[in-house]
């Protein structure tokens, strides 16, 4: 029996499958973080609002989504949403998993934004308000432009983390990188794809991490 074909042989023969998987991973991660960011913005503003009820609701939302495993959230989205909300019945299976990814990401992003806003010196807000600037203009024109320097790199890191997290979506037949394992297992290739998959993840996260570091350097130049 032996080990079978080498990693290189498998890669050379099936690289289009891995490529498609990698593109799927990048795409699902992007969709999750993109929509997660929009939702996360809303959540963070609720959390920073001085209205007690909104503050509590958003804080519970963040705690639950960060305190439970993503895989469990995916299962719940996959099996529970279609039953609980019949309107969602004819959505594709991909959508349920994406909903879980987006909600999960929004919780992390809202913390990133909250942290970014809190990292801006309180004196900035005080100076703006003492000039007579409204709370809204102070946020939009003074605080957020300064917070963005901390928020952007953290968002990019969230994207990198999400690339690894989406590997769980393969469980639900989503065509991402980890799912290629299932495809090739059908051809009795068990161990080689795993190393190839690991290698591709490593390349993607390393390259992106390097990119984030460049971005951070760029942003800090203006300090």
């Amino acid at each position: 029996m032996g080990l079978g074909p080498s990693i290189i042989d498998v890669f050379l023969e099936y690289w289009p499958i891995f490529l498609k998987g990698a593109i799927g991973t990048l795409r699902f991660s992007f969709i999750a973080v993109f929509f997660g960011s929009i939702l996360g913005c809303l959540v963070s503003f609720l959390r920073l609002s001085k209205i007690k009820v909104l503050e509590t609701v958003s804080s519970v939302y963040v705690t639950v989504l960060r305190g439970t495993p993503l895989l469990v959230q995916m299962y719940i989205a996959y099996f529970f949403l279609p039953i609980a909300f019949p309107i969602m019945n004819n959505l594709s299976k991909v959508t349920y998993v994406l909903i879980a990814l987006i909600l999960n990401s929004s919780a992390y992003v809202s913390e990133i934004i909250r942290g970014g806003i809190n990292s801006v010196d309180k004196g900035q807000t005080e100076a703006a308000r003492s000039l007579g600037m409204t709370a809204k203009n102070t946020m939009i024109r003074i605080v957020l432009p300064q917070a963005i320097k901390n928020i952007l790199p953290a968002l990019a890191n969230e994207y990198i983390a999400m690339i690894k997290e989406t590997s769980m979506a393969g469980t639900f037949m989503l065509y991402e990188l980890m799912y290629t394992r299932v495809l090739l297992a059908n051809k009795f290739l068990i161990w080689q794809p795993l190393f190839i998959i690991a290698g591709i993840y490593l390349v993607m996260t390393t390259v992106l991490t390097y990119g984030v570091r460049m971005l951070e350097r760029r942003l800090s130049v203006s300090d």
């Binding site: 900035q124 100076a127 003492s130 000039l131 432009p145 203006s222 300090d223």
Partner: peptide, 22 residues
């Protein structure tokens, strides 16, 4: 909300300057 209008007429200078760095 009138406070903003009154504050426009009350200038303040802080120990830590608090100029807008961006």
């Amino acid at each position: 909300t009138n406070l903003n209008l009154h504050r426009q007429k009350i200038g303040m200078v802080f120990q830590q300057f608090n100029v807008f760095p961006h």
